[in-house]
Amino acid sequence: MDFTTTLANMDWQQVMLLTWQHVYLVGIAVGLAILIGVPLGVLIVRLRWLAAPLLTVATVVITIPSIALFGIMLPILRNTYIALDGVDPGIREAGRGIGMTFWQRLWMVDLPLAVPVILGGVRTAVVMNIGVMTIAAVIGAGGLGLLILNGIGQSNVPLLVIGAIIVSLLAIVVDTLLNLLQRLLTSKGIEQ
């Protein structure tokens, strides 16, 4: 059960399939998290008293492995809140001055300004979620975690290590790509 035998016997087609499955699961989870996290972030900027309890609940949720899938909402929620909260009051005032409603200001002023920070949250969420999905194999969801779990199940340490390296590479590559995307999507006007 040495490293070379394991490497020679790897079913790379299956590895590709598992990688794809992993990315797909992460995509769905993060998509859902954006759909829920951003509106919630907007909500708690309006209803301040909800901010502290909601952020606390989100913090708790990420500590539970099996429901952590929903916890990836946290970075998105928090960054949306922080970004919207941090919009210069002067700009907000100016929007109000020209007669914009709350929703108009949100859509045309606040959110575009907040995009880079929200994307930062999405990036954190994606990276976190790639890690969390590794554990999802335990509940039969598939993904690259299966390589690690199979390595454990077969007492095959090389397989375990190969699985760990592949999933780490995936996380690093995706993180780098999203970093580039974040820079591309930052409005020229607010670059520093």
């Binding site: 890690g131 590794t134 690690i148 390595g151 375990l160 390296i165 999933v167 780490s168 996380a171 690093i172």
Partner: peptide, 9 residues
């Protein structure tokens, strides 16, 4: 960015 599960492994 390396997942904790990978570090454990």
């Amino acid at each position: 960015t390396v997942p904790p599960m990978a570090v454990l492994a």
